[in-house]
Design a protein around this nucleic acid. Sequence first.
DNA 1: ACTTGGCACTCGGGAACACAGAGTGCTAGA
DNA 2: TCTAGCACTCTGTGTTCCCGAGTGCCAAGT
Lengths: 337, 337
Amino acid sequence: MLDDRKLAVLRAIVEDYVSTNEPVGSKALAERHNLKVSPATVRNDMAALEEDGYITQPHTSAGRVPTDKGYRLFVDRLSQIKPLSGAERRAIETFLAGAVDLDDVVTRTVRLLAQLTRQVAVVQYPTLTRSTVRHVELVPLSDRRVMLVLITNTGRVEQRVVELPEVIEDLRIAHLRAVLNACLDGCGLATVPELLADLPERLPAEDRPVAATILSVLLETLVERHDEKIVFAGAANLAGADFATGLRDVLEALEEQVVLMRLLGETSSDIPTALTVRIGSENPYLHGTSIVATGYGSGDNQLARLGVLGPTRMDYPVTMGAVRAVARYVSQILAAS
Amino acid sequence: MLDDRKLAVLRAIVEDYVSTNEPVGSKALAERHNLKVSPATVRNDMAALEEDGYITQPHTSAGRVPTDKGYRLFVDRLSQIKPLSGAERRAIETFLAGAVDLDDVVTRTVRLLAQLTRQVAVVQYPTLTRSTVRHVELVPLSDRRVMLVLITNTGRVEQRVVELPEVIEDLRIAHLRAVLNACLDGCGLATVPELLADLPERLPAEDRPVAATILSVLLETLVERHDEKIVFAGAANLAGADFATGLRDVLEALEEQVVLMRLLGETSSDIPTALTVRIGSENPYLHGTSIVATGYGSGDNQLARLGVLGPTRMDYPVTMGAVRAVARYVSQILAAS
DNA sequence: ACTTGGCACTCGGGAACACAGAGTGCTAGA
DNA sequence: TCTAGCACTCTGTGTTCCCGAGTGCCAAGT
């Protein structure tokens, strides 16, 4: 049904359309890519491709434009991910290596990705659930308040002020801290709730109310931050592009953490480091936009996702190359620290 | 030169133009605002106003549009800041009260302001320089690494991993921590450098290399974060508006911390809680946009600035009311915690 | 059975044009 | 000093026309 030449025609249409942003006609196509056949033949193939829903024409007597289905076939079978140039790779490496803390890593990553792809980049903060506890700290602030600080192996720090039910001297706080650390140090965050379940019983009765208060805040912190923070950059790159769904909707989605999270997608596939490409209407909310995303994190320890968002008419091979490369580098950086 | 009626005409022009986004003509103006005079008279006044540069016409035989100078006069002398409704105030209060930590306060504030004004809101994180040290914490991570955590009275937490020049046991770390806290607790951040100047000399010789390393990182943290973080929200509100300078430039400025900082402006005036309004070409970088900003923070303790950015054609009275109100509430919240 | 050249057809987009309407400036009179 | 009237100048819109790119189809060629 779809012989090699038809596929070549489809590929040529996608490439031309992406680079020119104009519907591509049979004549120009036969010339620019040396297909060795006449425009008429190309027309026949185009008719077949249109029949099958891979391309469409905006109106009669206009050239053809790929449909979502056409882009899908292109991405799946007709294109190869384009690796970055050496210069680009070195630039990434040095730029990311300069980061001083986790916040900085994420900020740099998202900017880098936006600049590299000239699209909007989106990066999810590393998820807590897969991290482990490196240290729990209790800092007395006044006689009825302590600050709870939770440090994870990814360098993330969570802090909360806890109002205590009773006045408590520093020594007892110190003791509680020691117990907590003995109990949790190095454990996965997901296991914290069960590890803490019987903790109050192992404490002297007088400490239990205070401990209960602190523990509840600690657990709350874990739960609340489960839905992780997401940041984006490169919104300026949207200025030129035209979206089916309107620029306003895209900008709104970008500021809505929940929507953005859905768009990035869960690590659905078995191989979380595989690139996910969602094209146009394949997207849950924002039809008319495409998303190229992947998980990042070191080896078996997947941390979170990152990717870019752009118009359906996007240079997929290049974008995929950039996303993959950045994900790898940031994984390295995080693993090293 | 500018009698009362001319001023009334200018006010009417600004109000009409802001609400309709169309050049306003003499006839419509004489009708809608009961000026008790004929269109012809209005025309004469308009001619005078145009002569003085307060208004302009896009082309012959079109209505008039305020110039930057016209808006300036309007803001300075012709308008009153419009207070928020009771419902809005209650909404603000409950929304801000729900914040759990400093990040949350800032995030909520910026979103709130964006929604209230239907413009882009910008909020600078509270500056460190004016805060005081609440606690310094040193957490051993491994035998040659400690995490330095700095907690300020505004609830801000800064952390850094420090690589030590030699292996050091926990006891000495604990001692150093005690010394640091004794030295710094409650002190203003600005005074930290001088307070620490002679600290190494007061320590046993063996501890000095380690102390020096830690101190240098601590000082670095203070300096680096002096230029504070800035966040924005409500970019979607830009979608409708048209900017003289192009949407792209505005979006780029929003993502550039430094530019944004300049736009918000330093607390230039003597009264930092006064509203600053910069109109169109009065802005340093982004001509064609207006900015309404103010300092926030409790009483004499100014923390940082917040404001909104929008097209020159903006409802200044309402915007100013919203900015002022939000600044007050967030100041309250921060003072309470 | 494909491929190719030819040909009629369709439709969008630009140029030329007319025209209604809004708004102005000016002048003369109240 | 204000007002009414009037001629003038624009923009924006709707109409028409036409060019050209691009198509679909058909018949002939390989």
